[in-house]
Write a protein that binds this DNA or RNA. Structure first.
Lengths: 186, 186
DNA sequence: ACCTGAACACCGTTCAAGT
DNA sequence: ACCTGAACACCGTTCAAGT
């Protein structure tokens, strides 16, 4: 986890991890099947932190629609705040998360938390009816894309570190646009 | 370009490229400053192909709102159809596109094409007023996120190759949700 | 059970040297 | 101008051998 923060996704290396543990280059193979398994463990840790941030947001707001909007902003904030970690969570280093049960489970759980909030919005007639999973997919795609584009420097080009307030404003604006698309038509 | 298609982003290697060109491992350094420059050239080629696909879509539809929706679907279709290429276009291998003028220019041009279509929608009162660039950012984030999640196997988990018709349906549904958020309020 | 040391087949990159 | 050959400092991974 330190490695990915300090050296980026490309800097995560079995040999360097072993070095930091004060152990030989072959030792990691007693604990991880291969490099992908190591990276999967780092990604899992990232999803756990993201899940905690999201739970915190849900706890902080009572109105489900406010929760939904805050979730979107928090998601982007997390990604931009931990770009390397976020990259590892979604990058090609772990081509299929289902090969790593722990990772797959926590990633699925994160998504399900979003689905729940959306369902709560529907229950109070704040969002249109329909499969909440489908609405959640759209919401996830939007925030994920936003996060990725910011991390990549396509949005908010004041690279390398856009101000948190700018991120917040952008996220709030974009999330609101989608929310209006999801609202129950009056 | 062949390499990225056959071996994925991780398979793009200066030495292998040299091998395919029937040339020594050091020869590429006469043509590219380093590996990043090589990858940037591949990414640029990808943006050019994406731009061509988008121009084709615009040509095919007269109504700007129809163009916008078709652009979203075409974007996702391109990404899912050329996942490795797409990854290289947005991945961490090229950390800052501005370091590669050709790449930066064609990427910017692609985005501007989207802005134009959105402005056309606004001109005919089909979309809400406001900075078209800001609406384009939201639209881009949505389709980019959708593409990324599908490529990563988070959506349409019938991996590794989701049926084109499923991609189409998903993209159309999600794009429509955002479009309704962007519409001029009646 | 956990680790080491050495080895193998790869990288990206540099640099003198060739034509 | 373009390329080669050899070298350097790195990888991931394996495997016999040690405790």
């Amino acid at each position: 986890v330190d490695l990915v923060r300090e050296a980026g996704p490309a800097g995560v290396t079995l040999r360097e991890a072993a070095r930091r543990a004060g152990v030989s280059s072959a030792a990691p193979y007693r604990h991880f099947a291969d490099k992908e398994a190591l990276v999967a463990a780092v990604a899992e840790e990232g999803f756990r932190a993201l899940g905690a941030a999201m739970a915190e947001v849900v706890r902080k707001h009572r109105d489900p629609l406010a929760q939904l909007e805050a979730l979107g902003v928090a998601y982007v904030r997390f990604a931009v705040g931990h770009p390397s970690h976020y990259r590892v969570m979604f990058g090609p280093e772990v081509p299929d998360k289902r090969a790593h049960p722990g990772l797959h489970e926590v990633a699925t759980g994160t998504f399900n938390a979003l689905v729940s909030v959306i369902a709560a919005c529907q229950a109070t007639d704040r969002l249109r009816a329909g499969d909440p999973t489908e609405l959640a997919e759209a919401a996830w795609a939007l925030t994920h894309g936003l996060a990725d584009l910011v991390i990549d420097g396509h949005l908010l080009r004041g690279r390398p570190a856009p101000a948190p307030s700018d991120v917040e404003r952008l996220a709030r604006r974009v999330v609101r646009l989608l929310r209006e698309g999801l609202e129950s038509r009056s």
